[in-house]
Amino acid sequence: MKKEELIKKLESTELPKIELQSHRRRLKIALLDADYPERQREFAILDLTKSKVRGGIERMLKGLVSPRPVWKTALVTTLAIVLAVGLTIGLPSLIGQSPEALAAEIAQNSPDVIAALGGDEVETVRVLNIEDNMATVIVEGMMGGIVNALVDLHSKIVTQAVSGPQLTDEEKEKALDIVNADSKVRELLDRGAVIDLVLPMYVTFSRVNQETGKIEEITETWAQMWINLGNTQWGVQVDLIRGKVVSLTD
């Protein structure tokens, strides 16, 4: 088939125009009922913060015109705050925030990531890779919680935040044994590559239950690791259950 014929076919193919009124209705109800109260609470907290800041500034201004010699302290404090705010806001925009820094900032401030950490405080944020404006970021908590976040740098949102416990030492060992036994990974390691990080990954798939005929959703814990050689980094996905390397991509 010629390219022109293919284009003609793509343009003329009758497309399904399907409307599911029941889904449309249910989703609208769920959307409008579910999130707004929570968001309103967020606004309330934000307003409270704003009023506290406003109160502080008002107190400082009062100090400046007060007959008591508090103006020196107030002036120094104001200048310090202005300088700190200026450095925080102005400097990155002057020098330009790197995509890595932006990804890390979005991930650690994301409500999804914070929720996925389940109360644990953020300790480290690592940007593993950025491709097509999508960054993979690992956020580690102080109590050992770990979240794998996908950050859309274009929309500046976290599109996925998956949390979970670390792999056990046995699982890590098993993952390392599997990759060491894989000929392609072995070749990289023999060339001097180093395994940087071993993390869990959750794979969700569906299969048909032969007895009931229904589709069931299955989630398995696999391992993922990063291998560095010079400036190149490879990502490896390891199926711990079937004991094999599923993919090796740079």
């Binding site: 996908l150 929309s155 949102i157 599109t159 794979v203 798939f205 569906s206």
Partner: peptide
């Protein structure tokens, strides 16, 4: 913006569900 979120979600679906063949 909605199309972009949808495109990302579809990509997530395909990534999550490679063995999803039925």
């Amino acid at each position: 913006w909605l199309y972009r979120i949808a495109t990302n979600e579809i990509a997530n679906y395909f990534t999550k569900s490679k063995p999803w063949q039925f």
